[in-house]
């Protein structure tokens, strides 16, 4: 249920790139994450009516980083010294992973605090799906907006095929407003997390454009698609005939971060492009790959794709 090959291939490419890239900030390199395409969220779901304030009065509770939880000794009555040693050891373990370890137990069940904290984090992730991208950001970046064939979020969830197609108006509009057959076409979409666009798009986008500029790579006319899916890039490719499409899209919110952005790349995506030819750099957010570094990094990745005239599996094959 995933295209692990894409992951393999993309990672290999990234590894090679990393080893060639001295200019990569060291903080970013360790955190570069390539994930399975199909393990990424591709739809936002809600049956509930949108919240009163659609512009996202979502509250994010930072729970995973600061967690001075009350440590209750699991052992019923160990000596004072043992408790502190144990606690110390477990505290050390907890520093090594963001996972919810060392949380203690009530019988075989979790402690009340731990349980409610977990529920709260899930609640925040669910609520994050409802946000909308503020127009201000799109104006600032001079991105015009188009629609897919999806009418509302409910349909977006149930009909991914419609999120992979431009509306007739959208097709006309991009034909009219976008440069034809550019080297690189940048597309942005809220996908499953408007919050991801809100928090990261400006930094990623500007540093990507700068990076491509420095590399002397020509870019087309960027735009924003509301409720798009990744494979929408195929139809865009058909209409605009670019060499590379890079799509910046909001990921399915997780419990650790609800504002993670992914960048999908493909060489000459056209209707019928196979998934294994796409590649993805995911986990772009302030707790993952810092957005500015991600933008710069994507520039070098695109340079590579253009050089080999291939992406994903095909890129690795060509590289040998």
């Amino acid at each position: 249920m995933n295209e692990q090959l894409i992951q393999t291939i993309t990672k290999l490419v990234v590894e090679k790139l990393k080893s060639n890239e001295v200019s990569q900030p060291s903080a970013g390199t360790a955190d570069v994450q390539i994930k399975l395409h199909s393990k990424q969220a591709t739809g936002a779901l809600t049956e509930l009516p949108p919240p009163e304030n659609p512009n996202g009065k979502v509250t994010f509770h930072q729970t995973t980083s600061a967690k001075p939880e009350k440590k209750s000794a699991v052992h019923p009555q160990p000596a004072e010294k043992t408790i502190s040693k144990q606690e110390e050891f477990i505290e050390e373990l907890k520093k090594k992973t963001p996972s919810r370890i060392g949380v203690g137990r009530a019988g075989s069940r979790p402690k009340t605090n731990t349980w409610l904290q977990f529920r709260l984090d899930h609640a925040a992730a669910v609520d994050a799906v409802y946000g909308e991208v503020p127009d201000k950001i799109l104006h600032q970046l001079d991105l015009f907006q188009v629609q897919t064939r999806v009418k509302d979020k409910e349909e977006y969830i149930r009909r991914p095929d419609l999120g992979r197609k431009l509306s007739d108006e959208a097709k006309e509009l991009i034909k009219k407003r976008c440069a034809f057959s550019p080297s690189v076409q940048i597309v942005t979409s809220n996908g499953l997390s408007a919050k991801a666009i809100e928090e990261n798009l400006e930094d990623v986008y500007l540093s990507l454009v700068q990076s491509l500029g420095n590399l002397g790579i020509e870019t087309g006319t960027p735009f924003y698609v509301d409720k798009g899916r990744v494979a929408l890039m195929d139809e865009i490719g058909d209409v605009l005939q670019p060499d590379v499409v890079v799509m910046l899209i909001g990921e399915r919110p997780g419990l650790v971060s609800a504002e993670s952005l992914s960048a999908y790349l493909c060489y000459q995506p056209r209707i019928g492009t196979i998934e294994a030819d796409r590649m993805v750099v995911s986990n772009i957010h302030k707790g993952g790959i810092p957005p500015v570094e991600a933008g710069a990094y994507l520039g070098t990745l695109i340079q590579k794709i253009l050089k080999y005239e291939a992406s994903g599996v095909s890129l690795v094959k060509k590289e040998g």
Partner: peptide
């Protein structure tokens, strides 16, 4: 099974 059911890598429960 994952810690508290939260997989911090795959982002699912």
């Amino acid at each position: 099974a994952t810690p508290m059911g939260d997989d911090c890598m795959l982002n699912y429960q």
